[in-house]
Design a binder for these strands. Sequence first.
RNA 1: GGUGGGGUGGCCGAGUGGCUAAUGGCAGCAGACUGUAAAUCUGCCGGGUUAACGCCCUACGAAGGUUCGAAUCCUUCCCCCACCA
Length: 427
Amino acid sequence: MRSHALLDDLQWRGLLHQHTDEVAEVLHSGPVGGYIGFDPTAPSLHIGSLLVVMLLKRLQLHGHRPVALVGGGTGLIGDPSGKASERPMSDPQEVAANTARIRAQLERFLDFTGDNAARLIDNADWLVGLRAVEFMRDVGKHFTINYMLQKDSVKGRMDGGISYTEFSYMLLQAYDFLELRRRYDVRIQLGGSDQWGNITAGIELIRRSASLDAHAITAPLVTTSAGTKFGKTEAGAVWLDATLTSPYKFFQFWVNVDDRDAGRYLRYFTLLSRDEIERLDASLAEHPEKREAQHALARDVTARVHGEPALAAAEEVSGLLFGGADPKSLSREGLLALQLEIPVFTIEPDADRAALTTYDVLEAVCVGTEALFKSKADMRRMLQQGGVYLNGRRLGPEREPLAADDLLAGEFILVRKGSKSYGIVKV
RNA sequence: GGUGGGGUGGCCGAGUGGCUAAUGGCAGCAGACUGUAAAUCUGCCGGGUUAACGCCCUACGAAGGUUCGAAUCCUUCCCCCACCA
């Protein structure tokens, strides 16, 4: 088997899980199309999808044509891969709205100009109008139930049950690959390792129904050394959408990556060169407390996802909050910058400013999707445990009146929960 | 269609009339230690109220019922699993 620069790169980065044997030959034959499908079951991509987005990016950097397929059609069915139980069906309107948002996100990563311009395609284009009888004859006839039952995505569900709807998912994905092969000469499908079964079903279909070749490359599942699920924080998934996960929080997620994972994630998620990554590995080994690798990781990824200005702001805010500065010494400009990156809460406008207590401030940060405490009971618990700080000063459980100099720049109060969660209260 | 087993807090999983807001594990949060790590130790971990003790509300698939009192007993319904047809 021959190799290819793209495969070597993926191999070195630890991104090559499985691939079909002839992939290298195909890549050498000239610019080829490769695609990855994205499910619009959520309103945004998250950092788990970022890995495969980078796969497309790398494909393009090596001169090939990336195709991002948004599953406006398959999203209505639901992929059983990796799912332990049947999922509720998504609302078609929601899927359509999600599809639009995800398209917009994908557009930021790929280059849509030039000889190997990227393409964005929605499989609703061909799936929604598909007729049942035609589908059974043209696609269903090429698969035996025996073959389908062999797939992990189905096998794993034999105990818990799987609906015919989800069982059929792999056929729809296979059909996608066939359509892309015919319409756009897409020869390779990439994806996470959990997609292998669905991808090979597509390869089978293309070979049997069109007598054409098709190929697969999959990346491993991203793991954490701590054994937790990658990409989850206390607030849930880390999203690429700035309104769901702020650029500051996004940046912080990467800064906080475990030492043991930093080198791997640099390879997975950044476009940094091999030399640069190896230098960062060495830095991490010699001076782990500097966390140079984490910062490089955070900068590279945040810049790509949110842009340079958002990165600069996130870095500035991180410096203010974690640079050991006394909140009372923050400049007004610094405070304004903070407001853009950490959640802002307001106190009831009719409150008597002179009679405000610490509880009024803390109750303000219990409100909304970015609330620091999930309930007032939770807030009281945190106070008991000494995990709440007002302008850097630890609060006791008692209700205290606010002093005039508690208001930074005359109108702000900085609230901290634990060591990393911040909010600004505007009075 | 028949028979048997089962549905408990984010997840797994105990619990067969009061001592149960419900053992335990995982995940999560806070504190100590640190490097905004990891590991470890300690505490917390349904909601409201309280500085606190406490008090109140909601909860064990759904709805009714028995009882002074039910996650635990009875009835009906819904869903899942296994085996048989």
